[in-house]
Nucleic acid binder design. Structure first.
Lengths: 252, 252
DNA sequence: TAGTGGTCTAGACCACGGT
DNA sequence: CCGTGGTCTAGACCACTAT
């Protein structure tokens, strides 16, 4: 049989569906071993490629992970809650705590691979900051980890006119982070707007965030405005979609 | 050669990387035709399965779509902006417009496959509404389309004690939708909390939303509270990730 | 060393789309 | 009709993990 019966789903889909149901129902729980290629070949009497195709469906859905030389395992989802408004409350960074520390349940968030420099603003950055294209901006790129696990990449841009020569342009921005520094400059952020998109990661992002196949990322684009509605920061974040739940509270 | 040279990426990855760069750079633009299986076999001298594997990488990244009998094409991303706070302002549903109509640029949003009924509250719903598990709730499930294209699935739950026997339990809830009805019952929503997760869709969702492979979805879980902080609605939405950008504005 | 997943070849038949 | 992508078989060699 080169193909399956008329109008019935392809074999690899039926195998994938069966396995998915095993997982969804909890008969195969988090971390449990899933039947591998050889098992499926025997159980269903299919060729190697067909068994692989079935497994690749589940891998691309992000519900199982393949570990080379070992087997296929059910994947868990234990996200971190990132509370939009609360984490950016003035009280927080006013108290010397950096914004991103609010997300950590036990404060073991770390940053690494920090790059700081001045660059001409790309078009969308200039637009967000209300500047002419190619105006100089301070660019801060870093990666955040929690317990060694990479969680997000972030790049923020601030007008060089404002930030150049200040601690904002240093690797270590001091207590309270860049928002505390902006406040000292008389430009305390008062309003924020965050924009969220989902997509599959680029291979570079997948490597930097150590994403397993089938994991989407969230892009969070935040613009910080002063009380006078002057844009003082644009922050472009890429979050591991399997690691975060975002929360926003607001009134009618 | 059964495999590629030592430590170099597999052939299918190199082909995928090349094509991805063609797309990223704009040499292949939105909607353009991408070299197909037969093209890749000739150009790179590889077997069918290898060419397919290269293309499947891009398909799973959501950057190309395969059209049977026709070819492979670069995919476009033109999302709708869904503005969290603004769309739920009291002025809106107070004026007889339903909440979801706020998202449509030209008002041609439609709902279909509406199901309304009373069910025992599942655990997470009961928790969100502050009810005991299995307390009766009114359940409203529907699908939203824009210009014929399915955009999101939504299921809302309201305490049956509140909503049973009212227009809320009807397919057509009347002008202003369920929020206007809640206001008439003296339970106008005053606070909202939205929670956002991202993941790959289930096959059912992919079918209902007509998602092409490689498209993630966003889950938006919203709880509506009265001024007295009584939970009056829990709404579980699943959005086509390629169709939406979410926006939230808030103050420091 | 035995077993696992990862890559690849060389074929085959099918369903669908546009000419 | 021919070319496209979709499914499937039957092999092969490799790299890695666990024992």
């Amino acid at each position: 049989m080169a193909t399956s019966d008329n109008d019935s789903p392809p074999v690899y889909r039926e195998i994938a569906d069966t396995l998915r149901e095993e997982i969804r129902s909890g008969r195969l729980s988090d971390g449990a071993r899933v039947p591998g290629e050889n098992d499926l070949m025997k159980q269903y009497g299919v060729a190697r490629a067909t068994a692989r195709q079935a497994l690749s469906v589940l891998i691309n859905e992000g519900i199982v992970v393949a570990i080379r030389g070992s087997g296929i395992y059910v994947r868990a989802f234990r996200p971190l809650r990132r509370h939009g408004p609360r984490r950016l409350s003035r009280a927080l960074w006013g108290s010397g705590r950096a914004v991103w520390q609010a997300d950590a349940p036990d404060g073991d968030f770390e940053t690494d691979s920090i790059e700081v420099g001045e660059v001409p603003a790309p078009g969308y950055v200039a637009k967000a900051l209300g500047l002419a294209e190619d105006t100089l901006v301070v660019r801060r790129h870093r990666r955040y980890r929690l317990g060694g696990r990479p969680m997000q990449l972030a790049t923020s841009y601030l007008p060089a006119k404002l930030a150049a020569g200040t601690a904002i342009a240093e690797a270590d921005t001091g207590p309270g982070g860049i928002y505390a520094r902006l406040a000292e400059l008389g430009r305390a952020p008062a309003h924020f707007t965050e924009e969220i998109r989902v997509r599959m990661p680029t291979p570079d992002e997948a490597r930097e965030l150590r994403l397993s196949p089938g994991t989407p990322v969230m892009d969070v684009l935040r613009t910080a405005l002063t009380a006078e509605h002057e844009a003082v920061e644009f922050n472009e974040m890429t979050l591991d979609g399997s690691a975060y739940v975002l929360q926003y509270d607001f009134d009618a």
